[in-house]
């Protein structure tokens, strides 16, 4: 039996996946990452996309879609701290402004920059989801 490591994918809202895996592929911010057990400690950011896991005694790979977040690798454990939604600087800014605006109860028109950021984030989600679906179909 091949060596395994513990994989946990958690977001602030829920536990997405927890179990053992022989091999994990994640969409790192600097490029796709393939992690085997006994990997050196690594800490990086991940992009929205699919996380693939080779689970022992299972022909098919587990596929989990994440909205980006952070990845911590320890020799025997992989932890993904997943975001619950696509994060972009302009979007966070927009949320902050909205909260402020709600408090001030003053109405302001949206700027086009914010709209573009929102559209881009939606597009990124859609593309990543499509990619995950395509991978699933490919194997089915």
């Amino acid at each position: 039996m091949a060596a395994t490591m513990k994989v946990d994918i958690v977001s602030a809202e829920e536990q997405i996946f927890s179990g053992d895996a022989e091999f994990v592929v994640l969409p790192g911010i600097m490029g796709e990452l393939g992690i085997y057990p006994r990997h050196t400690p690594l800490f990086t950011e991940i992009k929205p996309g699919a996380v693939r896991m080779k689970v022992p005694n299972q022909e098919r790979e587990e596929l989990v879609f994440v909205m980006g977040g952070y990845l911590e690798v320890q020799p025997h454990a992989v932890t993904v701290l997943a975001d619950t939604a696509i994060r972009a600087k302009d979007l966070d800014e927009k949320a902050a402004l909205e909260a402020k605006r709600a408090a001030e109860e003053a109405m302001q028109n949206k700027t086009s920059k914010e709209e573009i950021a929102q559209a881009e984030a939606e597009l990124a989600t859609a593309l990543a989801q499509l990619e995950a679906i395509r991978k699933l179909r490919h194997r089915a």
């Binding site: 602030a12 790192g28 911010i29 600097m30 050196t40 400690p41 690594l42 800490f43 990086t44 950011e45 977040g69 952070y70 911590e72 690798v73 701290l81 975001d83």
Partner: peptide
């Protein structure tokens, strides 16, 4: 021991702290 950071520790720490 320490992690390998990609891209660098500061950016990651900033993001992690906020989260």
């Amino acid at each position: 021991w320490d992690y390998i950071y990609e891209p660098d520790a500061r950016t990651l720490l900033d993001g992690m702290m906020r989260r």
